[in-house]
Design a protein around this nucleic acid. Sequence first.
RNA 1: GUGGAUGUAGCUCAGUUGGUUAGAGCAUCGGUUUGUGGUACCGAGGGCCGCGGGUUCGAGUCCCGUCUUCCACCCCA
Length: 441
Amino acid sequence: MNFETLPGFRSFFPENCFLRNYIFKTWRKSAVSYNFQEYDAPTLEPLELYKEKSGEEIVNQLFNFVDKGDRAVALRPEMTPSLARLAGAKANSLKRPIKWFSIGEQFRYERPQKGRLRSFYQFNVDILGEPGVGADAELIGCLVETLKNFGLEQDDFKIRLSDRQLWILFLKHWNVSDAHMTSVLSIMDRMARLKKDKLRSQLNEYFGDDTDSFINSVEGLMAINSESDMLSFFSQLTLSEIHKQLVDDRLSELASLMQLINSMKIGQFVTIDFSIVRGLAYYTGFVFEAFEATGEGRALAGGGRYDDLIGRLSSNAMEAVGFAMGDVTLLDLLESKKKLPEYSQNPDVMILFSEDEARDCALADAQFLRSSGIKVDYPLKRVNFSKLFKEANQRGVPFVLIYGNEEIEKGLVKLKDFQTGEEYLIDRNERELLEKLKSLL
RNA sequence: GUGGAUGUAGCUCAGUUGGUUAGAGCAUCGGUUUGUGGUACCGAGGGCCGCGGGUUCGAGUCCCGUCUUCCACCCCA
């Protein structure tokens, strides 16, 4: 029999595991530097948890089955519902704001494609229980910091910032009813990807003869990239007094958010861009996505404010804002930008010894060096010296320790630096050996 | 779920109008007389030619199906 990895799943050979660990380490470091606390939740959850949030259709895209106790269960496709349950359960006793993050494997039953697999890892960062824009700014800051920690710079990525509430007010100006709001927003989210005639026919249902002028107006909105243009755009709209007030409130919220972002010195990474809508119905405020700077490829990360969701999934309502970043798109980007660290399976020191007494000395010293945190390796079977020299050289091992009969008789050990070719004779004494090595490594 | 392309050694690929035992480079392992360097030379292992059927005296090669991977839709929490 010949078994293959299931479609959309990955096997992690050591070099892949190394990269995965690098990504996890960098994610964790970034979140911890903002004092987010790490949590985790079960990989397998009740199917209902996801139906509740996303409706019946979601089941098509889940790994779900009935377990031996007749429970309908699903491998988690995302973290947010679990987070809502965890936080909701303890909401009254947790100190606000709640700053949590997690790193975990997620599963989606979809056709695999580049940048999109059936199993992937996701970094989720959320702030719960804080309604103010300070939380939104903190998350955008953490997102920028995370990408920077991967060695990405201003030329490499951009955060596009938009606002669902302004979008809704803009659509109200076009007399979109509350009942149609979600559907129209979802078309707006896909607008850049849709062909013009398809877009027009989809919008025609809602705008009729006004479709073309609506599209025109939307294109104007999506082209805006500064606060001042935003102000003049919305001042031209005809809105009721109440809606006008709401627009003003929202614009000043946006101004406060941008001010915080500038104070954090990350303004150069963030642009206002209303082509970001986010397909999900549950977003209630500012939304943002991180993209490769030229806009190519899938979003690296996405997030926003979802103040109503936790109340729907638990008995305690709580404001929330968060973002998620997947490992697949990130790996593709880091690889194309040559920002991935190099994998090496070399030890710091390779030990070479002859038989008997020399071997006893060598193994004893090896154990000591290992317990001191030095990566030590030696051949498990007898090999001749010239072979090992050759191998150490080919692999790029930086140091070789030689325990030959010549050295042992004199109570010495020879250390060879492969970079310089220099050799040192050292007294066979654990501490001296360690110090010499540490000074060279 | 729909449409298109793809598949030969661990990797990158050859393989003639269908014709003996399917090849190369890289990688791996061993050796070039047992204590010193990336080169060089010699050698070895490694293939259900994605899988299953069909046509044929004969299929890696032609036909059908299926799966994988990739691309475009769909979707994107």
